[in-house]
Every structure is written in C-alpha cells, then in structure tokens.
C-alpha cells in the first residue's frame, strides 16, 4: 500500500493460474467480486477511512503514519489497491502487485498480525457495505467469493514475508561466516584458528583458504586448529581437516589439531576415522606447548 514499482516475473502468470485453482476461484467468484466492486463504487474512500479509524489506536499507526503527507500518500495507494482488487481479475500483474506489496510491508517490519488484522477490517467493512446497499442482490456466496480472493491475495503477501525472512537469515549466516575464521598469530611462528559450531562444505573451504594464505603471509611453522567448539566431526569434516593438515605441511607448516573432547574422540573411533600422522591433542594448552617445542621457544615462569 506504500509505493513501489511492480515488476512482473516470468512465472507470475503460471502462479496466478495455480493459485486460482488452489483457492478454487472460478469465473463466478470473479463475477461476484466485480458486482461487489460496482456496489462499492464511490464507497471505497469511506471503507479506507474506517480502516484508519481501526488503525489509529495501534502503535504501528504512530510508527509509520504520523507524517500527514505520508498518510495521505498511503491512503491514496490503498484506495487504488482496493479498486484493483475489485476489478475481479487475477493475472500476472495482480500477482506481481501483491508480491511487491508484501515486500514493502515486510521490509518496513510491519508485523504480519497487524497486516492480517487490516485485511480483516476491510473484509468486515465490505461485507457490511454490500449488505446495506442492496440486500436482494448480495448473499453469502458473495462473502464466500470475497474470502477466497482475499485469502489468495494474503497468501502471496505472506509468501513474500517468508521470502524476505529467509533472505535475512541467509544474510545473517553470511555475516557469521565473515567472523568465523579468525586466524591469528598467537606467537612468533605460531598460528591459531579456533573453529566453533558446525562445519559445512563452504566453511571447510574457507578454513583451508584462510589458513594457507595466512601461512604464506606470516611464514609460520606451526598452525593450531582448535576444534573444541565444533559440534560434530563426521567423515566429511574429518576428511577435510586431514586435507588441511596435508596442505599446510606442503607449505612447511606443521598443523596440530587441538581440543579433541572425549565425546568427539569416541565418536571418531566408532566412525572408523583414521587420522594417520595428524597430531592431535586434548587441549589447546597441550598444542601450544607442542608448538613452542617445535618452534624452539621455551616459556618459563620468572623465579
């Protein structure tokens, strides 16, 4: 109901056909919507005004519509929305316009229940107006048709809310990825990478790339991969960790895997994973001690 250009997608026409079948909307339903449209001609402004009476006490009203200029613009778009709805045509353009409507509301963060409440308020108003205007020509079948089309309309909007939520989740995942491979030079010649959470194929590659480029950059001789925060080591993850240690070795850097918990150790044995010559330790402290040894550092407490 805010502005936003409508872009018709390739499959919107097919989607319109699919949704019409799903909501069992036939030509009779659309005809009834059109006759409601003519009965409501000139009354849509009043219905929209009633909607704002409903909305005024809600906190969302102040949040989004406190500016009179914005309110007026949104009001006009809303009238246009209902005029379009009451044309009784469900085609690619209809689907596209509902999708962009959903996108706009989802992006500004309007709660879905407020949106649905608003739709409900219109359904009530339209039913009342229709029954007042000419009770002979309107019956329950009109209300049924109206509900079907409103449900279809709302389904598209909710789908778009979902799609945007999924995009946000994926973006959050990407953001976490950015922070998930912090290789640091903990001591001269010694690198450390703590791995936390679940390792998937994308993250495996990230670990390999970050580790190797850091070795090239710092010319470190020992790298410690700490897996104490890793949820599971399955065969794919183990395979990858073994490959990382082989690759670092080729670059002249010994890779130690630290933080092998009792549960992970037992599981790896049961799974039948043979780590071969990879050096593993129970704690990060042990690995660090080993790393000091390899690099020729001695750490002593002051007497």
């Amino acid at each position: 109901m805010l502005d936003g250009e409508t872009v018709v997608h390739e499959n919107d026409a097919a989607q319109a056909i699919r949704l019409r079948a799903l909501y069992q909307i036939d030509e009779m339903d659309l005809e009834r919507i059109r006759s409601l449209g003519s009965a409501l001609d000139g009354k849509i402004d009043a219905a929209v005004a009633r909607f704002y009476e409903w909305m005024r006490p809600l906190p969302e009203f102040n949040e989004y519509l406190s500016d009179p200029a914005v309110l007026e613009r949104v009001r006009r778009l809303q009238v246009a929305y209902w005029v379009d709805f009451l044309r009784g045509v469900i085609d690619a353009e209809f689907v596209a316009s509902r999708r962009s409507l959903g996108a706009i509301h989802a992006r500004i963060g309007l709660p879905l229940d407020t949106y649905l409440g608003g739709m409900n308020s219109f359904l009530m108003t339209f039913s009342e107006v229709a029954s007042e205007s000419d009770s002979d020509s309107f019956d329950t079948s009109h209300v049924t048709s109206l509900s079907k089309v409103l449900h279809l309309d709302t389904a598209i909007v909710i789908d778009e809310y979902n799609a945007i939520t999924k995009t946000i989740i994926a973006e959050q995942g990407d953001a976490l990825m950015e922070m998930s491979t912090p290789v640091t030079e903990v001591w001269a010649d010694i690198l450390m990478l703590p791995i936390v959470g679940v390792i998937d194929s994308r993250r495996s590659m990230e670990i390999m790339n970050t580790m190797l480029s850091k070795i090239a950059e710092t010319r470190a001789h020992v790298a410690i991969l700490d897996i104490s925060g890793v949820a599971v080591i399955d065969t794919a993850v183990a395979n990858h960790l073994i490959k990382v240690t082989r690759a670092t070795r080729l670059m002249g850097c010994e890779c130690l895997i630290s933080g092998v918990s009792p549960a992970i150790a037992q599981t790896m044995v049961e799974l039948g994973i043979d780590v071969g010559t990879v050096r593993t330790t129970a704690t990060l402290q042990d690995a660090l001690g080993m790393a000091f040894h390899v690099t020729g550092h001695t750490v002593q407490r002051e007497a």
Binding site: A231, T235, A236, A263, Q266, E270, L271
Partner: peptide, 24 residues
C-alpha cells in the same frame, strides 16, 4: 539432534554419536 538426545537422557558421547549420524 544433539539437544534432543541430551534432553532425552543420552550421555554426552552418545548424544554426539546421534548428532554425527544425523550429520552423515
């Protein structure tokens, strides 16, 4: 899977095995 196994009362190593099997 790991959370459900723990809540069901499996030990930590066995919960890890369930989680690992789910992963595979």
């Amino acid at each position: 899977a790991r959370q459900l196994s723990r809540e069901a009362g499996l030990s930590t190593p066995r919960s890890t095995m369930i989680a690992t099997a789910v992963s595979e």
